[in-house]
Design a binder for these strands. Structure first.
Length: 487
RNA sequence: GCGCCUUUAGCUCAGUUUGGUAGAGCAACUGACUCUUAAUCAGUGGGUCGCAGGUUCGAGCCCUGUAAGGCGCACCA
């Protein structure tokens, strides 16, 4: 049997007293005339007038003065101060505040006035309890600090930490502006399966699940790519999807097992066209949401004015290390990696070694938006061979503030080549790479019907939100980040 | 996976070089107070010190294990 805490017991007693007074602590609705923000916005205009306003919200502060009181009500738009006087609402009714607590929802009617200190306030003539709160809110000036509690009980975090809500509203506005740009550019927003019989389009371990009706195992998608390209085959010229993907891998401040990706595909375009599209998309979205295309991330001023710098990956390595890897074999590349003091596992194919050198020696320096292009073919099984450079593909990644912000290519549309790339992946899988991509016969069949030349792009929306809001943990841009269950 | 750190009242935190009756502020409760806003004033209650062991006459503190979380590294398009 659980012992009832002192505070909870007080609230249970208050609830009982309310019911004895025939007051429903959980009534059904309240007709507002104004939000708190609207009252404050129109405050000067309606102040002193006879117009009655009705507002509602959660009591977040309460200052009792015997026969009068001040409180703040918090609603979705902000906070509004209310002033309640015993002789205006009646002594009995005023006494109800003995049964109210910070955290309760209240609906009030009254006229707007300005206090001596200049704050727009509702002088309450009537009020009604809208919902009783049974648990105390965190303390008023330190708020809720404990990260574990903030993530597990995001609802409390949102009540008491104003900036948290701002980030999530920013997130929504950003996604809206991304949609607006793509919609206005003739892209069609589509939906493709989350539950897939095969997974593909990225290197990652999937989550698996089971469908009872068909008695088959299914995977939660790790990317939308292969289905969106099927739609290009089907005759859509420009498609995009904003959706959750799921990767069964480690979690840290840049990775949550489920995250939001935006993928887009454009027929008759190559990766040069996609670079242009992407830099314009980012410049537009940032300007729409921030009001400017310049912002601070991690102590650096970032400027999103197109065009972004473009540099092939091997040249970027040469620039930052002096090492020219273009004509080196696996053994020589390994030697160079060792000399460069790259501390990662070096017993890997050349492509992986290049990646490792790039990540440690180049990536941290890519502060201003930079397209890194022309990746080795073994790292890019869904990208077309480079039209002039053997062994490389027409692929780019964007980096901003040292963070990877997307991946794109001239999409491979040669079905025979695609089959060979899948077979190479199968070889990697046999050698123990559990993130190698699996052969998708139906996807190859789609390519065999013919896919036009196509440029495609995918990027993590969460990370874009992080960079634009100068946030350093993905958990701060996802409402309910993955946590171990309590107890 | 490895290393470091955190865990004490509803919340934010103290708790000492050297183990000796569990502390503060806010929140709560009682009373006073009709323009306050960290309201003020007087008083009161509230603890399985994450959990389990160990050392000790005695552990919030020392030791071992364990759980959750954070940070860094590794892994990871």
């Amino acid at each position: 049997m659980e012992e009832t805490s002192e505070i909870l017991q007080h609230r249970i007693d208050k609830l009982k007293k309310l019911k004895e007074k025939n007051i429903n602590p959980y009534p059904y609705s309240f007709k507002r005339t104004h939000t708190s923000a609207e009252i404050i916005q129109n405050g000067e205009k309606i102040e002193g007038e006879q117009t009655e306003v009705k507002a509602a919200g959660r009591i977040v502060s309460l200052r009792l003065h015997g026969k009068s009181l001040f409180a703040h009500l918090q609603d979705g738009s902000g906070k509004i101060q209310i002033y309640v006087k015993s002789d205006e609402v009646g002594q009995d009714k005023f006494g109800l505040f003995d049964l109210f607590d910070i955290g309760d929802f209240l609906g009030v009617s009254g006229k707007v006035f300005k206090t001596r200190t200049g704050e727009i306030t509702v002088r309450v003539t009537d009020f009604v309890l809208l919902a009783k709160s049974m648990l105390p809110l965190p303390e008023k000036w330190h708020g809720l600090q404990d990260k574990e509690l903030r993530y597990r009980q995001r609802y409390v975090d949102l009540i008491v930490n104003e900036d948290v809500k701002k980030i999530f509203i920013f997130r929504t506005e950003l996604i809206k502006s991304l949609r607006r740009f793509l919609d206005d550019s003739g892209f069609v927003e589509v939906e493709t399966p989350v539950l897939q019989p095969l997974y593909g389009g990225a290197f990652a371990r999937p989550f698996t699940t089971h469908q009872n009706a068909l008695d088959i195992n299914l995977y939660l998608r790790i990317a939308d790519e292969l289905y969106l390209k099927r739609l290009i085959v089907g005759g859509f010229d420009k498609v995009y999807e904003i959706s959750k993907s799921f990767r069964n891998e480690g979690m840290d401040r840049n990775h949550n097992p489920e995250f939001t990706m935006l993928e887009l595909y454009q027929a008759y375009a190559d990766y040069h066209d996609i670079m242009e599209l992407y830099e314009n998309l980012l410049n537009y979205a940032a300007t729409q949401v921030l009001g400017t295309n310049r912002f601070e991330f991690d102590g650096n001023q970032i400027d999103l004015t197109p065009p972004f710098k473009r540099i092939p990956i091997l040249e970027s390595i040469k620039e930052h290390t002096g090492a020219d890897l273009s004509d080196k074999n696996e053994e020589e590349t390994k030697k160079i990696a060792t000399e460069l003091n790259v501390k990662e596992n070096l017993n890997r194919p050349k492509g992986k070694l290049i990646e490792a050198i790039f990540e440690t020696k180049v990536q941290p320096h890519l502060i201003q938006p930079t397209f890194i292009t022309d990746f080795p073919v073994e790292m890019s099984p869904l990208a077309k061979y480079h039209r002039d450079k053997p062994g490389l593909t027409e692929r780019f990644e964007l980096y901003i503030g040292g963070c990877e912000m997307g991946n794109a290519f001239s999409e491979l549309n040669d079905p025979q080549d695609q089959r060979e790339r899948f077979q190479q992946q199968a070889e990697l899988a046999r050698r123990g790479d559990d993130e190698a991509q699996v052969l998708d016969e139906d996807f190859i069949r789609a390519l065999e019907y013919g896919m036009p030349p196509t440029g495609g792009l995918g990027f993590g929306v969460d990370r874009l939100v992080m960079v634009l809001t100068n946030t350093h943990s993905i958990r701060d841009v996802i409402f309910f980040p993955q946590m171990r269950p309590e107890e």
